[in-house]
C-alpha cells in the first residue's frame, strides 16, 4: 500500500529525514513514536506531499507520488489526513465541512454527498451536530468531524499527526475509540502519537523514529517489552 525508499527531507541546511525506508501493507496500522523534533510530522506530511521530499521515492498503491506531482490533487485523495489542530473550516457547518471535497473534487451530487456525510457523522456519533459551526464543538467533537471529513473522500490510507495532543484529557478517549473502530474496519493507518497505550493496543507495527531515520521498528510487543537499541530504551523509559 505504501512503500518508501530512501526518503530525505531538508529544510535549508537542516536535514530532518536522512533516508527513510518503510513498507506498509494494506489494512496495517502503524504507529510512529519518537522524541520531539525527530521528524515524525515531516515524514507523515511527505506521504501526501504537504512537504516535498528532497530525495527518495514514495509509492502509494503502486503509483509513485514523487514522480506524479502534476496529479497531486488526485493522489492526495488516496490519503486522508487528520491534524493535531483539527483544521476544520470555521466558515462552514459541520456537514458542509464534510461535503465540500466530495462535491468539488469527486463532483458528487448534493444529495449523494449529504447522504455520505450523514452516514459518516453517525459513524463518529455526531449526527446531531450536522448543522452547527465548528466553534460550537468541543475539541474531541472537532477531531471526530475532522476524521469524518477525511473519510468522506474514501481514502485508502489515513494519516494521523498527533490527533489527540491538543485535546483535554477527558476527550482523548472518544477520539481514540473512533480510531480503533476505523482500524478494526480494515483501514490502513499511519498514526504519529504519544499515546503509548493506543500504540500498544491497536498498532500492528511501531516505528521508533530518531536521528532522521526509522531507528527501530517492530511489533508493539517487541518495541515496548523488548527494545533492542539504547536510544529506544531511553525514550521509552521517559514516556512510559
Amino acid at each position: 500500500m505504501i512503500k518508501v525508499n530512501n526518503l530525505h527531507k531538508c529544510f535549508g541546511a537542516l536535514e530532518v529525514l536522512k533516508g527513510i525506508d518503510a513498507s506498509i501493507s494494506k489494512g496495517e496500522v502503524v504507529c510512529v513514536i519518537g522524541p520531539s523534533g525527530s521528524g515524525k510530522s515531516t515524514f507523515l506530511r511527505c506521504l501526501n506531499l504537504l512537504e516535498e521530499p528532497t530525495k527518495g521515492e514514495i509509492f502509494l498503491d503502486g503509483i509513485s507520488i514523487t514522480d506524479h506531482k502534476k496529479d497531486i490533487d488526485k493522489l492526495r485523495q488516496k490519503a486522508g489526513m487528520v491534524f493535531q489542530q483539527f483544521n476544520l473550516f470555521p466558515n462552514l457547518t459541520v456537514i458542509e465541512n464534510i461535503m465540500l471535497a466530495p462535491r468539488k473534487v469527486l463532483r458528487m451530487s448534493e444529495a449523494d454527498a449529504r447522504k455520505r456525510a450523514e452516514d459518516l457523522l453517525t459513524r463518529v456519533n455526531l449526527s446531531e451536530k450536522a448543522d452547527q459551526y465548528p466553534n460550537r464543538l468541543s475539541g474531541g467533537q472537532k477531531q471526530r468531524v475532522a476524521i469524518a471529513r477525511a473519510l468522506a473522500m474514501n481514502p485508502q490510507v489515513m494519516l494521523f499527526d498527533e490527533p489527540t495532543s491538543a485535546l483535554d484529557p477527558e476527550m482523548v478517549g472518544e477520539v481514540l475509540e473512533v480510531m480503533k473502530d476505523l482500524a478494526k474496519s480494515g483501514m490502513t493507518m499511519v498514526v504519529v502519537t504519544h499515546e503509548m497505550g493506543f500504540a500498544r493496543e491497536v498498532a500492528d507495527r511501531v516505528f521508533y523514529m530518531d536521528e532522521g531515520v526509522i531507528y527501530e521498528e517492530g511489533t508493539p510487543e517487541q518495541i515496548f517489552r523488548n527494545p533492542q537499541k539504547t536510544r529506544t530504551r531511553e525514550f521509552l523509559s521517559k514516556v512510559l
Partner: peptide
C-alpha cells in the same frame, strides 16, 4: 491559519478551490 490551506489540499481540493471556498471567505 496555514492549516486551512493544508487541510483543503490534503482533501484533494485544488489551490484555487481551497482559496475560493475556504481561505477567501475567512
Amino acid at each position: 491559519d496555514r492549516g486551512q490551506m493544508e487541510a483543503g489540499r490534503s482533501l484533494g481540493l485544488s489551490y484555487s478551490h481551497t482559496m475560493r471556498y475556504i481561505i477567501i471567505p475567512q
